[in-house]
């Protein structure tokens, strides 16, 4: 198996890693050139869809007082992905919680900031309970019209595509790399895998523990997506001494403390995996077992215990069986 060209860079407030095999057709660019091209795509994606930049397309949409706003294909797709995730999660992964997220202190990018200690935050957190959807279901008021190239929503209803952006970006880049033997697109831990080479020899992906940083399990992917959501990175102390993080309970507008600190989901796409990982984390241990039952996943409880769910087998270290050599 030929080696994968591997490059990493910083974008979307996260580490992005591209691993690309050899082209299937001689007309395709070599992996080094493809990686440079896709890096440009990811950086453009991030710039146009950032909630934290007033000059982004998303920022312009949120600031526009009109009911109907012209939107590029990328913006329409990102908004549609957010609405799809809300539908898929019965309203729990809600793209309209911008006011709530800002109210708890997440008004600007936290890239480069040191997160608050999770164990201290857990000790001070309120009683654990699963999140519930917001009864208003504001996300149902969003309409995407691809024929006319517009997005419609009540003026003032702001949209955040950040909850699904990395998964969508990983899927988009994976689609653009479909002419290569193998590829891994890792957008901040939301990963898309594909190529005929992966079907023949699946890629091993390690799952990191949110407290220790250790590998708690190695997944084997022949294609599709895997994503992780957790509380350990975007977490901060508020001025009143309480702790907050970026995963919001839509029913209360407050950070959710569900009994889980990390969830990893497998799915046919990175977008769906990201949605399922967030859904699992928001709904706590019982909800996670339901959310991850079909495709499988790994959750980490508040006390650090690791639980494998669904079609994920604790049958040893895959890297030790030679899969690691594929990378």
């Amino acid at each position: 198996m030929s080696p994968l060209y591997d490059t990493s860079f910083r974008s979307m407030g996260s580490d992005v890693r591209l691993m690309i095999g050899t082209p299937l057709l001689p007309t395709l660019a070599p992996p080094e050139a493809a990686a440079a091209r896709e890096r440009g795509y990811v950086e453009d994606f991030a710039r146009r869809l950032s909630r934290f930049r007033s000059d982004s397309e998303l920022g312009a949409l949120n600031a526009d007082p009109a009911y109907e706003v012209r939107a590029s294909l990328l913006l329409r797709t990102a908004v549609a992905a957010g609405v799809w995730a809300a539908e898929r999660s019965c309203g729990l992964v809600d793209p309209t919680l911008v006011d709530e997220v800002e109210a708890i202190g997440y008004e600007s990018s936290q890239d480069g900031c040191t997160p608050a200690p999770l164990t201290v935050a857990l000790a001070a957190a309120p009683a654990r309970r699963p999140a519930r959807p917001c009864s208003e279901e504001r996300w149902r008021q969003i309409e995407i019209d691809h024929e006319r190239g517009v997005v419609r929503r009540p003026p003032g209803l702001r949209i955040d595509t950040g909850g699904t952006g990395k998964g969508l970006a990983a899927d988009a880049v994976a689609h653009r790399l479909r002419g290569y033997t193998r590829f891994v697109v890792d957008c901040g831990g939301d990963i898309a895998v594909g190529g005929v080479g992966c079907e023949l020899e699946p890629i091993a992906i390690e799952v990191e523990h949110p407290l220790t940083g250790e590998c708690v399990h190695t997944l084997r992917l022949a294609g599709g997506g895997v994503a992780t959501s957790g509380l350990n990175v975007r977490i901060w102390k508020r001025s009143d001494g309480t702790f907050a993080h970026h995963l919001i309970d839509p029913s209360s507008g407050e950070p959710v403390w569900s009994g889980l600190i990390g969830a990893t989901a497998l799915a046919p796409s990175a977008l769906e995996a990201e949605t399922l990982a967030k859904l699992a984390l928001l709904t706590g241990p019982e909800g996670a077992r339901r959310a991850l039952a079909d495709h499988g996943g790994v959750v980490v409880h508040d006390d650090g215990d690791v639980e494998l769910i669904g079609p994920v087998h604790a049958d040893g270290d895959l890297a030790a069986r030679g899969l690691g050599s594929a990378a």
Partner: peptide, 13 residues
């Protein structure tokens, strides 16, 4: 850039 020497990792970001 270079050739892959470590496994991809899924983690919170």
């Amino acid at each position: 850039g270079g050739y892959a020497s470590s496994l991809p990792v899924t983690r919170t970001s």
